[in-house]
Nucleic acid binder design. Structure first.
Length: 112
DNA sequence: CCACTGACTACTT
DNA sequence: CAAGTAGCCAGTG
């Protein structure tokens, strides 16, 4: 399996409930800063196979990048169910819901 | 190996 | 705040 893909999946799997991460952040945590776009690809490719919480991954503007016909509503509802609040522009307060990277610890393990 | 594509990000208008 | 432009990197053909 592609190392990059594995790392990305690992990171996403460690995102706590009620928190979100941006593509760029996930890529950085995976050890590939700047590869935000590939994170998106991994999500699309592995989400179903790995049962990942892909809905906890949004873009750097605190918004969902998916088109209305691509699962946008689903992601929004799932996040709201976890306590994530959406503003009038369908944006979330990153300061509030963005995962506190300081809590990172199990990712190096990869034992999940 | 080269070229194209993409759930992105940052900067500028 | 919204829209356009340029730079990014990895996966796929």
């Amino acid at each position: 399996m592609k190392p990059f893909t594995e790392d990305v999946i690992r990171v996403i799997r460690n995102i706590p409930k009620g928190k979100v991460l941006t593509y760029g952040l996930v890529a950085a945590l995976a050890g590939h800063p700047g590869a935000a776009r590939q994170v998106a690809r991994v999500l699309h490719t592995m989400s179903s196979a790995h049962n990942l919480p892909w809905h906890r991954v949004i873009n750097g503007q605190g918004k969902i990048s998916l088109p209305p016909a691509g699962g946008y509503e689903i992601q929004k509802k799932r996040l709201e169910s976890e306590g994530v609040e959406f503003g009038r522009s369908n944006r979330v307060d990153l300061k509030q819901v963005l995962w506190d990277i300081s809590s990172l610890d199990d990712i190096e393990n990869g034992t999940v």
